[in-house]
Protein backbone atom coordinates (compact mmCIF):
# COMPACT_ATOMS: atom_id res chain seq x y z
CA UNK A 1 0.00 0.00 0.00
CA UNK A 2 1.18 3.51 -0.75
CA UNK A 3 1.57 6.09 1.95
CA UNK A 4 -1.48 7.87 0.59
CA UNK A 5 -3.61 4.73 0.95
CA UNK A 6 -2.38 4.03 4.46
CA UNK A 7 -3.14 7.59 5.52
CA UNK A 8 -6.52 7.52 3.80
CA UNK A 9 -7.45 4.38 5.70
CA UNK A 10 -6.04 5.14 9.16
CA UNK A 11 -6.29 8.91 9.39
CA UNK A 12 -9.08 9.70 6.93
CA UNK A 13 -11.08 6.65 8.00
CA UNK A 14 -10.48 5.12 11.41
CA UNK A 15 -9.10 8.17 13.24
CA UNK A 16 -11.69 10.46 11.70
CA UNK A 17 -14.58 8.31 12.89
CA UNK A 18 -13.13 7.99 16.36
CA UNK A 19 -12.87 11.78 16.43
CA UNK A 20 -16.43 12.26 15.26
CA UNK A 21 -17.78 9.90 17.92
CA UNK A 22 -15.68 11.51 20.67
CA UNK A 23 -16.80 15.02 19.78
CA UNK A 24 -20.39 13.91 19.59
CA UNK A 25 -20.26 12.25 23.00
CA UNK A 26 -18.38 15.13 24.63
CA UNK A 27 -21.07 17.57 23.49
CA UNK A 28 -24.16 15.45 23.93
CA UNK A 29 -23.40 13.46 27.08
CA UNK A 30 -23.31 16.37 29.59
CA UNK A 31 -26.81 17.36 28.50
CA UNK A 32 -28.02 13.79 28.82
CA UNK A 33 -26.43 13.60 32.27
CA UNK A 34 -28.18 16.82 33.29
CA UNK A 35 -31.53 15.40 32.19
CA UNK A 36 -30.75 12.04 33.78
CA UNK A 37 -29.96 13.46 37.22
CA UNK A 38 -33.12 15.56 37.15
CA UNK A 39 -35.06 12.30 36.73
CA UNK A 40 -33.41 10.37 39.56
CA UNK A 41 -33.72 10.66 43.30
CA UNK A 42 -30.64 11.89 45.13
CA UNK A 43 -30.60 8.73 47.27
CA UNK A 44 -30.37 6.45 44.27
CA UNK A 45 -27.70 8.68 42.69
CA UNK A 46 -25.59 8.32 45.84
CA UNK A 47 -26.04 4.55 45.92
CA UNK A 48 -25.61 3.89 42.21
CA UNK A 49 -23.70 6.80 40.69
CA UNK A 50 -22.88 4.98 37.46
CA UNK A 51 -26.45 4.03 36.59
CA UNK A 52 -27.34 5.80 33.36
CA UNK A 53 -31.05 4.89 33.31
CA UNK A 54 -33.58 7.41 34.65
CA UNK A 55 -36.12 6.53 37.30
CA UNK A 56 -39.24 6.17 35.13
CA UNK A 57 -41.52 6.92 38.03
CA UNK A 58 -39.89 10.35 38.37
CA UNK A 59 -40.09 10.86 34.61
CA UNK A 60 -43.81 10.20 34.79
CA UNK A 61 -44.57 12.36 37.83
CA UNK A 62 -42.00 15.09 37.08
CA UNK A 63 -41.61 15.29 40.87
CA UNK A 64 -38.25 17.11 40.92
CA UNK A 65 -39.52 19.73 38.49
CA UNK A 66 -42.66 20.30 40.53
CA UNK A 67 -40.50 20.93 43.60
CA UNK A 68 -38.42 23.46 41.70
CA UNK A 69 -41.42 25.26 40.22
CA UNK A 70 -43.53 25.39 43.40
CA UNK A 71 -43.74 28.73 45.23
CA UNK A 72 -41.41 29.22 48.18
CA UNK A 73 -44.24 29.38 50.73
CA UNK A 74 -45.28 25.89 49.65
CA UNK A 75 -41.77 24.58 50.22
CA UNK A 76 -40.64 24.84 46.59
CA UNK A 77 -38.00 26.98 44.91
CA UNK A 78 -40.32 29.50 43.25
CA UNK A 79 -39.04 29.04 39.73
CA UNK A 80 -42.28 30.19 38.11
CA UNK A 81 -41.45 33.75 39.21
CA UNK A 82 -37.92 33.47 37.80
CA UNK A 83 -39.21 32.13 34.49
CA UNK A 84 -41.65 35.02 34.27
CA UNK A 85 -38.94 37.57 35.06
CA UNK A 86 -36.50 36.03 32.60
CA UNK A 87 -39.07 35.90 29.83
CA UNK A 88 -40.14 39.47 30.50
CA UNK A 89 -36.62 40.88 30.59
CA UNK A 90 -35.46 38.92 27.52
CA UNK A 91 -38.51 39.67 25.38
CA UNK A 92 -38.57 43.37 26.21
CA UNK A 93 -34.82 43.63 25.61
CA UNK A 94 -35.19 41.87 22.25
CA UNK A 95 -38.15 44.00 21.16
CA UNK A 96 -36.52 47.32 22.03
CA UNK A 97 -33.16 46.28 20.60
CA UNK A 98 -34.68 45.29 17.26
CA UNK A 99 -36.96 48.32 17.11
CA UNK A 100 -34.09 50.72 17.67
CA UNK A 101 -31.29 48.94 15.87
CA UNK A 102 -33.07 48.23 12.57
CA UNK A 103 -33.55 51.92 11.79
CA UNK A 104 -30.19 52.83 13.32
CA UNK A 105 -28.40 50.20 11.23
CA UNK A 106 -30.20 51.54 8.19
CA UNK A 107 -28.96 55.03 8.98
CA UNK A 108 -25.43 53.74 9.50
CA UNK A 109 -25.35 51.98 6.11
CA UNK A 110 -27.45 54.13 3.78
CA UNK A 111 -27.34 57.70 5.01
CA UNK A 112 -24.44 60.14 4.90
CA UNK A 113 -23.76 62.18 7.96
CA UNK A 114 -20.89 63.75 9.80
CA UNK A 115 -19.48 61.44 12.45
CA UNK A 116 -20.41 58.24 10.61
CA UNK A 117 -17.01 56.65 11.15
CA UNK A 118 -16.99 57.67 14.78
CA UNK A 119 -20.33 55.94 15.34
CA UNK A 120 -19.29 52.79 13.52
CA UNK A 121 -15.94 52.47 15.26
CA UNK A 122 -17.30 53.53 18.60
CA UNK A 123 -19.83 50.73 18.57
CA UNK A 124 -17.19 48.18 17.75
CA UNK A 125 -15.01 49.46 20.57
CA UNK A 126 -17.87 49.19 23.06
CA UNK A 127 -17.96 45.53 22.20
CA UNK A 128 -14.44 45.12 23.60
CA UNK A 129 -15.04 46.75 26.99
CA UNK A 130 -15.11 44.21 29.84
CA UNK A 131 -18.51 43.89 31.50
CA UNK A 132 -16.92 43.87 34.93
CA UNK A 133 -15.33 47.27 34.32
CA UNK A 134 -18.75 48.78 33.68
CA UNK A 135 -20.37 46.79 36.44
CA UNK A 136 -18.88 48.82 39.29
CA UNK A 137 -19.86 52.34 38.18
CA UNK A 138 -23.29 51.09 37.07
CA UNK A 139 -23.78 49.43 40.43
CA UNK A 140 -22.91 52.67 42.23
CA UNK A 141 -25.03 54.71 39.84
CA UNK A 142 -28.05 52.45 40.19
CA UNK A 143 -27.79 52.47 43.95
CA UNK A 144 -27.81 56.27 43.94
CA UNK A 145 -30.67 56.50 41.46
CA UNK A 146 -32.79 54.07 43.47
CA UNK A 147 -32.90 51.58 40.62
CA UNK A 148 -32.04 48.89 43.12
CA UNK A 149 -35.21 49.27 45.17
CA UNK A 150 -38.47 47.57 44.12
CA UNK A 151 -38.93 44.74 41.63
CA UNK A 152 -40.13 46.72 38.56
CA UNK A 153 -37.34 49.27 38.92
CA UNK A 154 -34.69 46.60 39.29
CA UNK A 155 -35.90 44.78 36.20
CA UNK A 156 -36.18 48.03 34.27
CA UNK A 157 -32.63 48.90 35.29
CA UNK A 158 -31.46 45.49 34.15
CA UNK A 159 -33.14 45.87 30.75
CA UNK A 160 -31.47 49.24 30.24
CA UNK A 161 -28.07 47.73 31.01
CA UNK A 162 -28.74 44.84 28.64
CA UNK A 163 -29.59 47.34 25.92
CA UNK A 164 -26.16 48.90 26.25
CA UNK A 165 -24.57 45.59 25.30
CA UNK A 166 -27.19 44.25 22.86
CA UNK A 167 -27.63 47.43 20.81
CA UNK A 168 -24.03 47.52 19.52
CA UNK A 169 -24.13 43.80 18.64
CA UNK A 170 -27.49 44.07 16.88
CA UNK A 171 -26.43 47.19 15.03
CA UNK A 172 -23.26 45.53 13.91
CA UNK A 173 -25.01 42.37 12.71
CA UNK A 174 -27.79 44.21 10.87
CA UNK A 175 -25.41 46.71 9.36
CA UNK A 176 -23.30 44.01 7.77
CA UNK A 177 -26.45 42.46 6.33
CA UNK A 178 -27.93 45.72 5.00
CA UNK A 179 -24.68 46.32 3.17
CA UNK A 180 -25.36 43.24 1.05
CA UNK A 181 -28.76 44.52 -0.17
CA UNK A 182 -28.44 46.32 -3.52
CA UNK A 183 -29.01 50.07 -3.19
CA UNK A 184 -30.77 50.16 -6.57
CA UNK A 185 -33.95 48.67 -5.13
CA UNK A 186 -34.36 51.53 -2.71
CA UNK A 187 -33.34 54.13 -5.24
CA UNK A 188 -36.20 53.00 -7.44
CA UNK A 189 -38.59 53.35 -4.52
CA UNK A 190 -37.23 56.79 -3.61
CA UNK A 191 -37.71 57.98 -7.17
CA UNK A 192 -41.27 56.66 -7.04
CA UNK A 193 -41.87 59.00 -4.13
CA UNK A 194 -41.20 56.86 -1.09
CA UNK A 195 -39.57 58.53 1.86
CA UNK A 196 -36.47 56.96 3.39
CA UNK A 197 -38.46 55.43 6.20
CA UNK A 198 -41.01 53.98 3.79
CA UNK A 199 -38.20 52.48 1.76
CA UNK A 200 -36.85 50.94 4.94
CA UNK A 201 -40.23 49.54 5.89
CA UNK A 202 -41.32 48.30 2.49
CA UNK A 203 -38.07 47.14 0.95
CA UNK A 204 -35.17 46.72 3.33
CA UNK A 205 -37.01 45.07 6.23
CA UNK A 206 -38.85 42.44 4.12
CA UNK A 207 -35.57 41.58 2.40
CA UNK A 208 -33.70 41.25 5.70
CA UNK A 209 -36.11 39.09 7.64
CA UNK A 210 -33.59 36.24 8.03
CA UNK A 211 -30.97 38.61 9.40
CA UNK A 212 -33.50 40.27 11.68
CA UNK A 213 -34.58 36.85 12.94
CA UNK A 214 -31.05 35.79 13.72
CA UNK A 215 -30.29 39.11 15.42
CA UNK A 216 -33.44 38.82 17.50
CA UNK A 217 -32.68 35.26 18.53
CA UNK A 218 -29.18 36.23 19.39
CA UNK A 219 -30.22 39.17 21.53
CA UNK A 220 -32.82 37.01 23.28
CA UNK A 221 -30.16 34.44 24.12
CA UNK A 222 -27.76 37.07 25.46
CA UNK A 223 -30.44 38.40 27.81
CA UNK A 224 -31.68 34.94 28.76
CA UNK A 225 -28.20 33.67 29.67
CA UNK A 226 -26.81 36.80 31.33
CA UNK A 227 -25.51 36.30 34.83
CA UNK A 228 -23.16 39.03 36.10
CA UNK A 229 -25.44 42.08 35.88
CA UNK A 230 -28.38 40.07 37.20
CA UNK A 231 -26.22 39.11 40.18
CA UNK A 232 -25.24 42.72 40.84
CA UNK A 233 -28.62 44.35 40.44
CA UNK A 234 -31.09 41.74 41.67
CA UNK A 235 -29.42 39.66 44.35
CA UNK A 236 -31.09 41.06 47.49
CA UNK A 237 -34.59 40.99 45.96
CA UNK A 238 -35.64 37.41 45.37
CA UNK A 239 -38.84 38.34 43.57
CA UNK A 240 -36.82 40.10 40.89
CA UNK A 241 -34.48 37.19 40.16
CA UNK A 242 -34.03 35.92 36.65
CA UNK A 243 -33.43 32.24 35.95
CA UNK A 244 -29.61 32.28 36.07
CA UNK A 245 -29.78 33.59 39.65
CA UNK A 246 -32.49 31.10 40.49
CA UNK A 247 -30.33 28.22 39.30
CA UNK A 248 -27.27 29.59 41.09
CA UNK A 249 -29.17 29.68 44.39
CA UNK A 250 -29.95 25.97 44.10
CA UNK A 251 -26.21 25.37 44.41
CA UNK A 252 -26.16 24.99 48.20
CA UNK A 253 -25.76 22.13 50.62
CA UNK A 254 -29.44 22.20 51.59
CA UNK A 255 -30.83 21.60 48.11
CA UNK A 256 -30.44 18.15 46.52
CA UNK A 257 -28.26 18.23 43.42
CA UNK A 258 -31.04 16.61 41.41
CA UNK A 259 -33.00 19.83 41.84
CA UNK A 260 -30.00 21.86 40.71
CA UNK A 261 -30.03 19.76 37.54
CA UNK A 262 -33.78 20.21 37.08
CA UNK A 263 -33.26 23.98 37.32
CA UNK A 264 -30.47 23.72 34.75
CA UNK A 265 -32.74 21.80 32.40
CA UNK A 266 -35.47 24.43 32.79
CA UNK A 267 -33.13 27.26 31.82
CA UNK A 268 -31.61 25.27 28.93
CA UNK A 269 -34.81 24.00 27.27
CA UNK A 270 -35.98 27.30 25.70
CA UNK A 271 -32.53 27.86 24.21
CA UNK A 272 -32.33 24.38 22.74
CA UNK A 273 -35.90 24.63 21.41
CA UNK A 274 -35.21 27.98 19.75
CA UNK A 275 -31.99 26.55 18.36
CA UNK A 276 -33.69 23.47 16.96
CA UNK A 277 -36.38 25.46 15.20
CA UNK A 278 -34.23 28.33 13.98
CA UNK A 279 -30.86 26.68 13.63
CA UNK A 280 -30.12 28.22 10.26
CA UNK A 281 -30.60 31.75 11.63
CA UNK A 282 -28.65 31.15 14.81
CA UNK A 283 -25.66 29.58 13.09
CA UNK A 284 -25.65 32.45 10.60
CA UNK A 285 -25.83 34.97 13.42
CA UNK A 286 -22.97 33.43 15.36
CA UNK A 287 -20.53 33.91 12.52
CA UNK A 288 -21.99 37.16 11.16
CA UNK A 289 -21.79 39.08 14.40
CA UNK A 290 -18.75 37.44 15.88
CA UNK A 291 -21.06 36.99 18.78
CA UNK A 292 -19.57 37.23 22.24
CA UNK A 293 -19.38 34.18 24.44
Amino acid sequence: MSRENIEQFWIGGVLRWIGIVLFFLACAFPFYYMLLLSFRSIQSVLVEPANLIPDWELVRTLQTYKEVLKPVDQGGQGFVVFIRNSLGVSLVTTAITLWVSISAAYAATRLDFRGKNLVNWGLLLVYMIPAIVLAIPLFVLYSKLGLRSDVPRRLLGLIVVYLSSTLPVALYMLRSYFQTIPVELEEAALIDGCTRLEALRKIVIPLSLPAIASTGLYVFMIAWNEFLYALLFLLEERNAWTLPLGVKQLDTQEVPKTMLMAGSVIITIPVIVLFTFFERFITGGLTAGGVKG
Binding site: I20, F23, F24, C27, A28, P30, F31, Y33, M34, L37, M221, W224, N225, F227, L243, P244, V247, K248, D251, K257, L260, M261, S264, V265, I267, T268, V271, I272, F275, T276, E279, I282, T283, L286, G293
Partner: peptide, 23 residues
Protein backbone atom coordinates in the same frame (compact mmCIF):
# COMPACT_ATOMS: atom_id res chain seq x y z
CA UNK B 1 -23.40 16.32 14.33
CA UNK B 2 -22.92 19.99 13.58
CA UNK B 3 -25.99 20.98 15.60
CA UNK B 4 -25.03 18.94 18.63
CA UNK B 5 -21.54 20.41 18.56
CA UNK B 6 -23.03 23.88 19.04
CA UNK B 7 -24.88 22.94 22.24
CA UNK B 8 -22.05 23.74 24.65
CA UNK B 9 -21.83 27.24 23.22
CA UNK B 10 -25.49 28.19 23.16
CA UNK B 11 -26.56 26.64 26.48
CA UNK B 12 -26.74 29.05 29.43
CA UNK B 13 -23.51 29.32 31.39
CA UNK B 14 -25.10 28.36 34.72
CA UNK B 15 -26.47 25.10 33.29
CA UNK B 16 -23.18 24.06 31.69
CA UNK B 17 -21.14 24.92 34.77
CA UNK B 18 -23.37 22.98 37.12
CA UNK B 19 -23.56 19.87 34.99
CA UNK B 20 -19.77 19.87 34.77
CA UNK B 21 -19.49 20.20 38.52
CA UNK B 22 -21.88 17.26 38.89
CA UNK B 23 -19.98 15.11 36.41
Amino acid sequence: FRSILLFPYIAPIVATVFVWRMM
